[in-house]
Design a protein around this nucleic acid. Structure first.
Length: 426
DNA sequence: TCTGGGGTCCTAGGACCC
DNA sequence: TCTGGGGTCCTAGGACCC
């Protein structure tokens, strides 16, 4: 695809992987050490809302057996004094920018993986010292300037840097070379290899491949026949081979979506439509902020037994406004579930995104020319929310507290058809 | 282990076209 | 009118990661 990877491999690269330890909890600890320092903490949603899943937990909590993905209830059973904290993503984003700024001082070639992780290609950064010195400097600065712990992996490629940063936590620093693989990783189970999850590990076990070493030496034809293209890259990974480049430019989003687990199962159609209106609004708004329009709409429906369905449709004309997305989402739902079953979770995902400029001609021709009022209103509402926050503007159909279903139904229709007469400002 | 929410990539089947 | 083969697009599901 580009000369980067081949060239890098020829010259021999040096890659760092930075992994912020227990990031969300560490951020809260940095902000309010008097409350949280050294304590077992967990960032989690609310149990009452059935969202009581531990997203991250501190190291003192981990020492008590608390783990990411557990329910809050389980966590509290293991550690009754566990301190629960509601997530604050704006705060996390601020700290995320902070550590990426520090890392960016040591190489312009940085790939942002997620809010708490990045790769840094320091192949050309010798003016800042040896790879080990650079890693130590970054780690020290993040600790001093942000009061955050991080683990660093140093390797000849992204895979080994990533696996290295995972070997010592918190605040570890690990060099992992290809020749270290047999000694350090080959006796470990396959699912410890980046990219191999539980399902694949189960399937490998049925093929009598239990360790990363066995995978490294497995018959490639067998792997390919069982796993497709993924089979050979898995074998490569087990041998420490990875040519993927560190890419500083983020690929544009391919989809934008929102899902929500409902406080209780819902099977009344008006209620479901109301939830979809809320999701359509949030999803559309995030997509607009990123500057896209969508040519595909997908809904996600999860039943109480956790079976999950998706239904999607391509649109002739790209969309960006919540009422149209809401209408499509309701259509998809009603077509496939004319008599709704109890539903645990609903979601809307917009895909086949295009930059808004490139779709502007189509939008103008087919949609906004006839509805200039709607575009103006959407803009006004976005501006209000940028200023006063997400909840500043609600359309009447999103208000779920109304005790009268009849009134609510009427409002839903009103909202989707003539949103301009129905919106309210808190 | 009664299981959140944001994504990406891959696969497989069917429709459709040449 | 018993019916090939290749390519592309769409839909749905699943695995994986953070």
């Amino acid at each position: 695809m580009n000369g980067n990877s081949a060239e890098g491999a020829r010259k021999g690269r040096v890659i760092l992987h930075l992994d912020m330890n227990a990031f969300y909890c560490s951020v809260h600890e940095a902000e309010q050490p008097e409350l949280y320092k050294g304590k077992p903490t967990a960032v989690a949603g609310s149990v009452e809302q059935r969202k009581g899943i531990i997203v991250t937990c501190s190291y003192p909590a981990r020492a008590r057996g608390v783990r990411t993905g557990m329910t809050v209830r389980q966590g509290l059973k293991l550690c009754p004094e566990l301190i629960l904290i509601s997530p604050d993503f704006d705060l996390y984003r601020r700290y995320s920018r902070g550590f990426k700024e520090i890392a960016g001082n040591y190489s312009p070639l940085m790939e942002i993986v997620s809010i708490d992780e990045c790769y840094l290609d320091i192949s050309g950064s010798s003016m800042f010292g040896s790879p080990l010195e650079i890693a130590e400097t970054i780690q020290r600065r993040i600790a001093m300037e942000l009061s955050l712990p991080c683990s660093v992996g140093i390797g000849p490629n992204k895979l080994l840097a990533k696996m290295g940063s995972d070997m010592k936590k918190p605040s570890g620093l690990t060099v992992l070379r290809i020749r270290d693989m047999p000694k350090l990783l080959w006796d470990k189970p396959c699912d410890q290899l980046f990219g191999v999850g539980r399902k694949t590990a189960d399937k490998l076990r049925r093929l009598n491949i239990r360790t990363i070493g066995q995978l490294a030496n497995a018959d490639e034809a067998l792997l390919t026949s069982q796993f497709g293209v993924y089979g050979s890259s898995m074998k490569n990974a087990a041998n420490g081979i990875d040519h993927s480049p560190v890419r500083e430019l983020r690929e544009p989003n391919k989809s934008v979506g929102h899902t929500t687990t409902l406080p209780a199962n819902v099977s009344a159609k008006p209620e479901i439509h109301r939830v979809l209106l809320n999701l359509a609004d949030q999803t559309a708004r995030r997509m607009r902020r990123k500057g896209f329009v969508a040519c595909g709409v997908q809904i996600t429906v999860r039943l109480p037994d956790m079976t999950t369905f998706t239904r999607s449709r391509m649109l002739d004309v790209p969309v960006e406004d919540a009422p149209t997305i809401h209408r499509e989402a309701c259509r998809l739902f009603d077509e496939h579930w004319p008599e709704p079953p109890p539903v645990r979770l609903l979601g809307i995902t917009l895909h086949n995104l295009q930059p808004k400029e490139s779709a502007a001609v189509q939008l103008d021709l087919f949609s906004y020319e006839s509805e200039p009022k709607r575009e103006a209103l959407t803009k006004a509402m976005d501006a209000l929310r940028d200023k006063y926050g997400e909840s500043a503007v609600l359309t009447a159909g999103m208000l779920g507290d109304d005790p009268s279903t009849l009134i609510r139904n009427r409002k839903i229709r009103g909202t989707s058809l003539q949103i301009d007469e129905d919106f309210v400002i808190n």
